[in-house]
Amino acid sequence: MTAYTATVTIRLKRGVLDPEAETTQQALERLGFELDDLRSTDRFEIDLDAENSEAARDRADEMAERLLANPTIHDYEVEVSGR
């Protein structure tokens, strides 16, 4: 078994309204910053032991599918690195 960290990044699908991100963007603009757009994401860093990186990725994928992301509104990606 090898120790890995699986990083799951979850973002709203393109086209799905993100009122919190819009509010954050407006706050930055009020502070005088110039920006074109702002997107927020959720990021989970999951420490786990697995046979290999593929097995670690599969497990993190399933975690995203079953709990961390909602496929109706979210896309997600998984990155695996040694720990």
Partner: peptide, 17 residues
């Protein structure tokens, strides 16, 4: 109900935030 798949779709943050 939506999160459990009892009904389709999702309820998320109000447009007004």
């Amino acid at each position: 109900g939506c999160e459990a798949g009892l009904t389709p779709g999702a309820f998320t943050v109000n447009r007004s935030a």
